[in-house]
Amino acid sequence: MTTVTTPAGRESQREPAGLPEAPVGHTTGWWAMVLFICTESATFAAALASYFYLRFIGSGPWPPVADSRPSLLVPSVGTAVLVLGCVPMGIAVRAARRPGRLLAWVSLVVTMLTGVAFVVLQIVDYRGEWPDSTLSKDAYGSLFYSITGLHGLHVAVGVLMVAVLVASTSLRRIGGGEAGPVRIVAMYWYFLAVLALAVYGTVYISPYL
């Protein structure tokens, strides 16, 4: 008969019938988000790998059109804003565990605004790149717009998620000790920030290396 010993040294396996007083452990929703992030990571891995593959399979300069390396200012600001957005998100998670909803609500709104700012800055960046580089001019342009566009789309979805959290907090459905959904969305938000760094490093920085 198997016995699994807990750190406290108690035998816990033999009679697992009893319910814990309060629910413990990760929820199914938490796991679903972990797995969703796994599959999304694989998608971006495939996209970024394609970027480097196409860059190094040809022997010519990169980008192929001379002096058309992406400008750095706008995307740098956008990426920084998105990464810094993790701070209010983290505050929101902590605040949602405690009674009172105001802090959670405010930090969620700030988080959402960082996401909106990122998307707006991305559009500004596109206007700067066009028409020197377009989606259909060469493989470089196709990669540039599709990778950054895919990431921007993900941020937009993240903004929608946070917006739902803001609404839920306003309606007192979550917050005040009810932090599950905030934790799950926060995980996705951190993931977006990590992706932003990966995309930034690949699409904006690597052509200069």
């Binding site: 196409l54 010519g60 259909s136 001019k137 060469d138 493989a139 470089y140 342009g141 196709s142 599709s146």
Partner: peptide, 9 residues
């Protein structure tokens, strides 16, 4: 787009 078009990179 030009992902799989050899003549354009």
């Amino acid at each position: 787009t030009r992902f799989f078009v050899p003549s354009d990179g």
